[in-house]
Amino acid sequence: MNAAKSLGSSFGTYTTQARGLIPLLVLVLLVGGSSLFAPSMLSVGGLSSFFTDAAPLLILVVGSTLPILAGSIDLSVAGIAALVGVLTVFLHPIFGPWATPIVLVGALLFGALQGYVHAKLQLPSFITTLATLSILTGLALLLSNATALPIPDDDSLISWISGSVGPVPNSIIVVVCATIVLAAVLRYTRFGRDLYALGAGERTAIMSGVNTTRVRCLVFALSAFCAGIGGVLLSSITGFSSPTIAGNLLLLSIVGVVLGGTAISGGVGGLGSALVGGVITAWLRVITVMVGVTPTTQNIVFGVMALIAVMLTTDRAKIGIVK
C-alpha cells in the first residue's frame, strides 16, 4: 500500500514537472519552425529588436500572473500602463526627473487600494478591475487631451531603459530582474505560500490563518507596479506617451499567462513559465505580421488561443459549477 502511494506521488510529481516544461518545448518548436522562413529573427540584431519590442508585454504578463495565481484577475493593467506614461509627462514640470519613480510608486499604491476594495467589499475582481480600467483610460484621455505627448529628454530613467548593454536591451534586463525578484518572493516568503494557498482554495486558506485581504492587496499592488513599469517601457520605445498606447496588450497579457501554464482558476503556475508564455505570445505576434495576418485577424487568433488555453488549464473540480 505504501509503495503504491509512493509510486503515485512520484508519478504526480513527474507529471507536474513535465507539464511545466510544455511551454518551453512549444517555444523551442515555434522558434525553430519560424527560423525556416525568417532566419534573420535569430540573428543578434533580430533578437535584440524582438526583446526590446516584447519587454512591455512580458512585464505585463509577469504582473498579471500574480492575481490569477490568487484566483482573481486584473483587467486594469493596460489602463495603468497608459496612465503612467501620461502622468510621467504631465508631472514632469513639477517633479522633473523624479516624476517617473513617483508615478510608479503611485501605481503601486493604487494597486493596493484596488486589491483592498476587491477583498473588503467582496466585489468580483473582474468587475472591480474592469471598472478601474475604464476610469484610468478616461483619466489618461482627459489629462493628455487625447493626444500623444513627447517624453522629456532629461528623464534619466527612461533614457537609460531605452539604451542597451552591448546587444542586450536594458528593457529586457529590467524585465528579467523583476521576474527573478518576484519569483524569489513567491518561493521563499510566507506571502508566496499564502498566495498559492489562496489560489488553491480561499476557505481552506482562511482556516489556515491566511490574511486574504492583505494577500490580495499585495498581489494587486505588485500587478499594478509591473503594469506601471510596462508603461515606462512603452514610453522608452516610442519616445512619447499616449492614452491608448497599451490598449492592445490586455488580451495578449492574459494569453501569455495561460499559455505559460498558469491555471485561470488559480493556485497552479509560476512566473518563470509565465515569462515563457509571454515570449511565445510576443513571438507569435511577430510571426503573424510577417506572414501577412492583419491586426484584426490577429485579435481573432489570440482570442481563440485564449479560449483554448483557459479550457486546458481550468481546474473544474475546484471551481465546481462554472458560471
Rank of each mutant, 00 (worst) to 15 (best):
A224L: 01
T189L: 07
A205Q: 04
F191L: 12
L234A: 12
V176R: 04
V174P: 06
P167G: 07
A205S: 10
S125I: 12
S171Q: 12
I180P: 09
T137Q: 14
V215R: 02
P152L: 06
L133T: 08
L157V: 10
T137A: 13
L234F: 13
V117M: 13
F126M: 12
G115Q: 06
S208W: 01
A205I: 08
G115E: 05
I151P: 01
V181E: 05
V215L: 06
C226W: 04
A148K: 12
G230K: 06
Y116C: 05
A119R: 13
L109P: 06
G192E: 08
L186A: 05
I229M: 13
T213F: 00
A140M: 07
I161V: 15
F126R: 02
D153C: 00
I172A: 08
S134Y: 11
P169D: 03
H118M: 13
L195R: 11
L109V: 15
S235K: 06
A183F: 01
C177N: 03
L234M: 15
G231H: 03
A148R: 14
G111H: 08
G192K: 10
I172N: 06
A184G: 13
L233R: 07
G199F: 04
G192P: 11
L121K: 11
L182K: 06
S208L: 11
L142V: 06
Y196K: 07
S236A: 15
I135F: 14
L123C: 03
P167F: 12
Y196C: 03
T204D: 11
A224D: 05
A224W: 02
R214Q: 12
A205L: 03
T137P: 01
V117G: 06
D154G: 02
V117Q: 01
A183Q: 15
F126E: 09
F126L: 15
G166T: 06
L113T: 09
R190V: 14
L157A: 10
T213G: 14
G166I: 09
C217I: 14
L121M: 14
A119M: 08
Y116F: 15
L113N: 02
V105I: 15
